[in-house]
Protein backbone atom coordinates (compact mmCIF):
# COMPACT_ATOMS: atom_id res chain seq x y z
CA UNK A 1 0.00 0.00 0.00
CA UNK A 2 1.23 3.48 -0.85
CA UNK A 3 2.30 5.82 1.90
CA UNK A 4 -0.49 8.06 3.10
CA UNK A 5 -0.72 11.57 1.67
CA UNK A 6 -1.54 12.91 5.08
CA UNK A 7 -0.64 11.28 8.35
CA UNK A 8 -1.66 13.12 11.50
CA UNK A 9 -0.12 11.58 14.58
CA UNK A 10 -1.27 12.33 18.09
CA UNK A 11 -1.99 15.98 17.29
CA UNK A 12 -2.79 18.16 20.27
CA UNK A 13 -3.93 21.76 19.78
CA UNK A 14 -4.99 23.94 22.68
CA UNK A 15 -6.57 27.38 22.72
CA UNK A 16 -5.44 29.51 25.61
CA UNK A 17 -8.38 31.83 26.25
CA UNK A 18 -9.07 34.32 28.96
CA UNK A 19 -11.38 31.86 30.64
CA UNK A 20 -9.15 28.82 30.45
CA UNK A 21 -7.54 26.31 28.15
CA UNK A 22 -9.63 24.59 25.51
CA UNK A 23 -8.19 21.35 24.19
CA UNK A 24 -9.75 21.78 20.78
CA UNK A 25 -7.83 18.93 19.18
CA UNK A 26 -7.10 16.32 21.77
CA UNK A 27 -4.50 13.76 20.65
CA UNK A 28 -6.01 13.12 17.23
CA UNK A 29 -4.53 10.66 14.74
CA UNK A 30 -5.74 10.40 11.15
CA UNK A 31 -4.39 9.28 7.84
CA UNK A 32 -5.52 9.66 4.25
CA UNK A 33 -4.21 7.57 1.38
CA UNK A 34 -3.64 8.99 -2.10
CA UNK A 35 -6.94 9.56 -3.87
CA UNK A 36 -8.92 8.67 -0.78
CA UNK A 37 -11.74 10.71 0.76
CA UNK A 38 -11.85 10.88 4.53
CA UNK A 39 -14.91 12.50 6.09
CA UNK A 40 -14.34 14.17 9.43
CA UNK A 41 -17.74 14.27 11.07
CA UNK A 42 -19.02 15.96 14.18
CA UNK A 43 -21.21 18.64 15.64
CA UNK A 44 -20.29 22.27 16.23
CA UNK A 45 -17.36 22.68 18.55
CA UNK A 46 -16.11 19.10 18.22
CA UNK A 47 -12.74 20.25 16.88
CA UNK A 48 -13.08 19.19 13.25
CA UNK A 49 -12.37 22.63 11.81
CA UNK A 50 -9.47 23.18 14.20
CA UNK A 51 -7.98 19.87 13.07
CA UNK A 52 -8.16 21.02 9.45
CA UNK A 53 -6.68 24.40 10.27
CA UNK A 54 -3.73 22.80 12.03
CA UNK A 55 -3.08 20.59 9.01
CA UNK A 56 -2.96 23.57 6.71
CA UNK A 57 -1.11 25.75 9.23
CA UNK A 58 -3.81 28.35 9.78
CA UNK A 59 -4.50 27.90 13.48
CA UNK A 60 -4.95 31.42 14.88
CA UNK A 61 -1.99 32.06 17.17
CA UNK A 62 -2.72 33.29 19.76
CA UNK A 63 -4.84 31.81 21.23
CA UNK A 64 -3.94 28.55 19.47
CA UNK A 65 -0.87 26.55 20.45
CA UNK A 66 0.16 23.25 18.89
CA UNK A 67 1.13 21.38 22.01
CA UNK A 68 2.35 18.22 20.38
CA UNK A 69 2.08 15.66 17.63
CA UNK A 70 3.02 15.50 13.98
CA UNK A 71 1.31 16.41 10.74
CA UNK A 72 3.06 14.49 7.97
CA UNK A 73 2.30 15.58 4.43
CA UNK A 74 3.92 13.03 2.15
CA UNK A 75 6.19 12.05 5.05
CA UNK A 76 7.26 15.63 5.74
CA UNK A 77 6.37 17.01 9.21
CA UNK A 78 4.56 20.36 8.90
CA UNK A 79 4.42 21.28 12.59
CA UNK A 80 7.98 22.68 12.87
CA UNK A 81 7.78 24.53 9.53
CA UNK A 82 8.02 28.32 9.41
CA UNK A 83 5.17 30.52 8.24
CA UNK A 84 7.03 31.16 5.00
CA UNK A 85 7.48 27.46 4.29
CA UNK A 86 3.83 26.82 5.06
CA UNK A 87 2.79 29.66 2.76
CA UNK A 88 4.66 27.98 -0.08
CA UNK A 89 2.93 24.68 0.60
CA UNK A 90 -0.57 26.12 0.85
CA UNK A 91 -2.26 26.42 -2.48
CA UNK A 92 0.42 24.21 -3.99
CA UNK A 93 0.62 20.78 -2.39
CA UNK A 94 -2.47 21.25 -0.29
CA UNK A 95 -5.43 23.60 -0.50
CA UNK A 96 -8.56 24.40 1.42
CA UNK A 97 -12.13 25.33 0.54
CA UNK A 98 -14.19 27.03 3.23
CA UNK A 99 -17.86 27.06 4.11
CA UNK A 100 -18.62 30.64 3.28
CA UNK A 101 -17.44 31.44 -0.24
CA UNK A 102 -18.27 35.13 0.13
CA UNK A 103 -15.87 35.81 2.96
CA UNK A 104 -13.09 33.65 1.58
CA UNK A 105 -12.83 35.62 -1.64
CA UNK A 106 -11.39 39.13 -1.52
CA UNK A 107 -14.19 41.53 -2.53
CA UNK A 108 -11.89 44.14 -4.09
CA UNK A 109 -10.19 41.90 -6.65
CA UNK A 110 -11.66 40.22 -9.70
CA UNK A 111 -12.06 36.48 -9.83
CA UNK A 112 -9.37 36.39 -12.52
CA UNK A 113 -6.88 38.30 -10.40
CA UNK A 114 -7.39 35.93 -7.50
CA UNK A 115 -6.94 32.86 -9.65
CA UNK A 116 -3.83 34.18 -11.36
CA UNK A 117 -2.32 35.35 -8.10
CA UNK A 118 -2.36 31.78 -6.80
CA UNK A 119 -0.64 30.44 -9.89
CA UNK A 120 1.96 33.20 -10.05
CA UNK A 121 2.81 32.68 -6.38
CA UNK A 122 3.66 29.03 -6.85
CA UNK A 123 4.73 28.61 -10.47
CA UNK A 124 7.32 30.38 -12.58
CA UNK A 125 5.04 31.11 -15.50
CA UNK A 126 4.10 34.15 -17.55
CA UNK A 127 0.95 36.17 -16.91
CA UNK A 128 -0.44 35.02 -20.25
CA UNK A 129 0.01 31.38 -19.25
CA UNK A 130 -1.48 32.03 -15.84
CA UNK A 131 -4.47 33.65 -17.50
CA UNK A 132 -4.93 30.76 -19.88
CA UNK A 133 -4.66 28.16 -17.13
CA UNK A 134 -7.08 30.11 -14.94
CA UNK A 135 -9.68 30.26 -17.68
CA UNK A 136 -9.21 26.57 -18.33
CA UNK A 137 -9.77 25.81 -14.66
CA UNK A 138 -12.91 27.96 -14.52
CA UNK A 139 -14.21 26.02 -17.48
CA UNK A 140 -13.32 22.78 -15.74
CA UNK A 141 -15.45 23.71 -12.72
CA UNK A 142 -18.27 24.38 -15.18
CA UNK A 143 -18.50 28.12 -14.88
CA UNK A 144 -20.32 29.33 -17.99
CA UNK A 145 -18.60 32.08 -20.01
CA UNK A 146 -15.37 31.53 -18.09
CA UNK A 147 -13.46 34.09 -20.14
CA UNK A 148 -15.90 36.86 -19.20
CA UNK A 149 -16.22 35.72 -15.56
CA UNK A 150 -12.50 36.38 -15.05
CA UNK A 151 -13.35 40.11 -14.90
CA UNK A 152 -16.22 39.69 -12.41
CA UNK A 153 -16.01 40.60 -8.76
CA UNK A 154 -17.07 38.03 -6.15
CA UNK A 155 -20.32 39.83 -5.30
CA UNK A 156 -21.44 39.53 -8.91
CA UNK A 157 -21.59 35.75 -8.59
CA UNK A 158 -24.13 33.56 -6.81
CA UNK A 159 -23.17 31.43 -3.81
CA UNK A 160 -22.83 28.29 -5.88
CA UNK A 161 -20.67 30.06 -8.47
CA UNK A 162 -18.41 31.48 -5.77
CA UNK A 163 -17.93 28.03 -4.31
CA UNK A 164 -16.96 26.80 -7.79
CA UNK A 165 -14.42 29.62 -8.00
CA UNK A 166 -13.02 28.63 -4.61
CA UNK A 167 -12.64 25.07 -5.84
CA UNK A 168 -10.96 26.30 -9.01
CA UNK A 169 -8.45 28.33 -6.99
CA UNK A 170 -7.78 25.36 -4.73
CA UNK A 171 -7.12 23.00 -7.63
CA UNK A 172 -5.02 25.29 -9.82
CA UNK A 173 -1.73 23.86 -8.64
CA UNK A 174 -3.03 20.29 -8.58
CA UNK A 175 -2.62 19.68 -4.84
CA UNK A 176 -2.14 16.22 -3.36
CA UNK A 177 -4.62 17.07 -0.63
CA UNK A 178 -7.78 19.14 -0.74
CA UNK A 179 -9.42 20.08 2.54
CA UNK A 180 -13.07 21.04 2.20
CA UNK A 181 -14.61 22.53 5.36
CA UNK A 182 -18.40 22.29 5.15
CA UNK A 183 -18.20 23.18 1.45
CA UNK A 184 -21.95 22.91 0.84
CA UNK A 185 -23.46 23.88 4.18
CA UNK A 186 -24.25 27.44 3.11
CA UNK A 187 -25.78 26.31 -0.17
CA UNK A 188 -29.25 25.23 -1.25
CA UNK A 189 -29.90 21.56 -1.72
CA UNK A 190 -29.91 21.62 -5.54
CA UNK A 191 -26.71 23.69 -5.57
CA UNK A 192 -25.22 21.33 -3.00
CA UNK A 193 -25.93 18.43 -5.32
CA UNK A 194 -24.14 20.26 -8.14
CA UNK A 195 -21.07 20.99 -6.03
CA UNK A 196 -20.86 17.44 -4.65
CA UNK A 197 -21.13 16.06 -8.17
CA UNK A 198 -18.35 18.41 -9.25
CA UNK A 199 -16.12 17.36 -6.36
CA UNK A 200 -16.70 13.70 -7.19
CA UNK A 201 -15.66 14.24 -10.81
CA UNK A 202 -12.62 16.35 -9.97
CA UNK A 203 -11.46 13.95 -7.30
CA UNK A 204 -11.27 11.16 -9.87
CA UNK A 205 -9.72 13.34 -12.52
CA UNK A 206 -7.03 14.97 -10.36
CA UNK A 207 -6.42 11.93 -8.16
CA UNK A 208 -6.20 14.08 -5.08
CA UNK A 209 -6.98 13.03 -1.54
CA UNK A 210 -9.94 14.80 0.03
CA UNK A 211 -10.41 15.67 3.68
CA UNK A 212 -14.11 16.48 3.86
CA UNK A 213 -15.30 18.17 7.02
CA UNK A 214 -19.03 18.11 7.55
CA UNK A 215 -21.83 17.67 10.04
CA UNK A 216 -24.20 16.26 7.40
CA UNK A 217 -24.31 12.49 7.45
CA UNK A 218 -26.04 12.41 4.08
CA UNK A 219 -23.07 14.17 2.51
CA UNK A 220 -20.74 11.70 4.22
CA UNK A 221 -22.62 8.72 2.84
CA UNK A 222 -22.49 10.17 -0.65
CA UNK A 223 -18.83 11.18 -0.68
CA UNK A 224 -16.58 9.41 1.79
CA UNK A 225 -14.41 6.31 1.55
CA UNK A 226 -13.64 6.35 5.24
CA UNK A 227 -15.14 8.26 8.16
CA UNK A 228 -13.71 9.64 11.39
CA UNK A 229 -16.23 10.80 13.98
CA UNK A 230 -15.09 13.51 16.37
CA UNK A 231 -16.58 14.41 19.72
CA UNK A 232 -15.25 17.03 22.13
CA UNK A 233 -11.86 17.24 20.42
CA UNK A 234 -11.28 13.51 20.11
CA UNK A 235 -11.75 10.95 17.40
CA UNK A 236 -14.22 8.49 18.91
CA UNK A 237 -14.72 6.17 15.95
CA UNK A 238 -13.19 5.56 12.57
CA UNK A 239 -14.10 3.03 9.91
CA UNK A 240 -14.87 2.54 6.25
CA UNK A 241 -18.03 4.32 5.18
CA UNK A 242 -20.19 1.26 4.60
CA UNK A 243 -19.00 -0.33 7.79
CA UNK A 244 -19.74 2.70 9.95
CA UNK A 245 -23.23 3.23 8.58
CA UNK A 246 -24.07 -0.47 8.79
CA UNK A 247 -22.34 -1.26 12.02
CA UNK A 248 -21.60 1.78 14.21
CA UNK A 249 -19.91 0.77 17.45
CA UNK A 250 -19.60 3.98 19.47
CA UNK A 251 -22.84 5.06 21.17
CA UNK A 252 -22.33 8.62 19.91
CA UNK A 253 -22.10 7.45 16.30
CA UNK A 254 -25.14 5.27 16.85
CA UNK A 255 -27.03 8.21 18.31
CA UNK A 256 -26.09 10.52 15.46
CA UNK A 257 -27.15 8.02 12.83
CA UNK A 258 -30.43 7.36 14.59
CA UNK A 259 -31.30 11.02 15.03
CA UNK A 260 -31.35 12.03 11.38
CA UNK A 261 -34.77 12.04 9.81
CA UNK A 262 -34.31 10.56 6.34
CA UNK A 263 -36.53 10.28 3.33
CA UNK A 264 -37.66 6.78 4.35
CA UNK A 265 -41.19 6.22 5.54
CA UNK A 266 -42.78 5.50 8.85
CA UNK A 267 -40.83 7.29 11.52
CA UNK A 268 -42.94 8.02 14.54
CA UNK A 269 -40.37 9.49 16.88
CA UNK A 270 -36.79 10.41 16.19
CA UNK A 271 -34.14 8.92 18.38
CA UNK A 272 -32.25 11.63 20.20
CA UNK A 273 -29.07 12.07 22.13
CA UNK A 274 -30.04 13.78 25.38
CA UNK A 275 -28.24 16.90 26.54
CA UNK A 276 -25.85 18.97 24.51
CA UNK A 277 -22.21 19.05 23.41
CA UNK A 278 -20.01 19.52 26.50
CA UNK A 279 -18.36 22.80 27.27
CA UNK A 280 -14.75 22.20 26.31
CA UNK A 281 -13.60 24.44 29.12
CA UNK A 282 -14.57 21.74 31.53
CA UNK A 283 -14.62 18.40 29.90
CA UNK A 284 -15.99 15.51 31.89
CA UNK A 285 -13.40 13.15 33.29
CA UNK A 286 -13.14 9.74 31.69
CA UNK A 287 -14.94 9.28 28.40
CA UNK A 288 -16.28 12.71 27.45
CA UNK A 289 -19.49 11.24 26.08
CA UNK A 290 -20.68 9.48 29.22
CA UNK A 291 -23.02 12.24 30.47
CA UNK A 292 -25.10 11.72 27.32
CA UNK A 293 -24.46 8.01 26.91
CA UNK A 294 -27.26 5.49 27.46
CA UNK A 295 -24.91 2.65 28.37
CA UNK A 296 -22.31 4.43 30.50
CA UNK A 297 -21.05 2.69 33.62
CA UNK A 298 -18.63 3.48 36.42
CA UNK A 299 -15.50 2.83 34.37
CA UNK A 300 -16.61 5.30 31.67
CA UNK A 301 -16.76 8.08 34.25
CA UNK A 302 -13.30 7.44 35.57
CA UNK A 303 -11.10 6.32 32.70
CA UNK A 304 -10.76 7.58 29.20
CA UNK A 305 -11.03 4.83 26.60
CA UNK A 306 -8.43 4.76 23.82
CA UNK A 307 -9.21 3.99 20.20
CA UNK A 308 -9.20 0.21 19.91
CA UNK A 309 -9.28 -1.93 16.78
CA UNK A 310 -12.60 -3.81 16.74
CA UNK A 311 -12.39 -5.13 13.21
CA UNK A 312 -9.84 -4.53 10.47
CA UNK A 313 -9.93 -0.79 9.78
CA UNK A 314 -12.65 -0.17 12.37
CA UNK A 315 -11.64 1.54 15.58
CA UNK A 316 -13.75 2.97 18.37
CA UNK A 317 -12.94 4.61 21.68
CA UNK A 318 -15.50 3.04 23.96
CA UNK A 319 -15.15 0.68 26.90
CA UNK A 320 -18.31 -1.12 25.97
CA UNK A 321 -17.71 -1.46 22.25
CA UNK A 322 -15.25 -4.30 22.46
CA UNK A 323 -17.56 -6.41 24.60
Amino acid sequence: MADPVLDVRDLHVALHTRRGVIHAVDHVSLHIDPGETLALVGESGCGKTMTALSVIGLVPKPPGVIEGGQVLLGGDDLVPKSDEEMRRLRGDRMAMVFQEPMTSLDPVFTIGAQLMETLLAHRAISRADAHAQSVAMLKRVQIPEAERRMDNYPHELSGGMRQRVMIAIALLCRPDLLIADEPTTALDVTTQAQILELLRELRGEFGMALLLITHALGVVAEMADRVAVMYAGRVVETAGVEEIFANPRHPYTKGLLASIPDLADGQERLATIPGTVPNLLHKPPGCCFWPRCPIAEARCRAQEPALAELAPGHQAACWKASA
Binding site: Q192, A193, V241, L263
Partner: peptide, 11 residues
Protein backbone atom coordinates in the same frame (compact mmCIF):
# COMPACT_ATOMS: atom_id res chain seq x y z
CA UNK B 1 -34.99 17.30 -8.82
CA UNK B 2 -35.33 18.75 -5.34
CA UNK B 3 -35.96 15.28 -3.93
CA UNK B 4 -33.19 13.78 -6.01
CA UNK B 5 -30.76 16.37 -4.70
CA UNK B 6 -31.15 15.36 -1.06
CA UNK B 7 -28.09 13.40 0.03
CA UNK B 8 -29.08 9.97 1.30
CA UNK B 9 -27.45 8.75 4.49
CA UNK B 10 -26.85 5.29 3.07
CA UNK B 11 -23.51 4.63 1.38
Amino acid sequence: VLLAAVPIADP
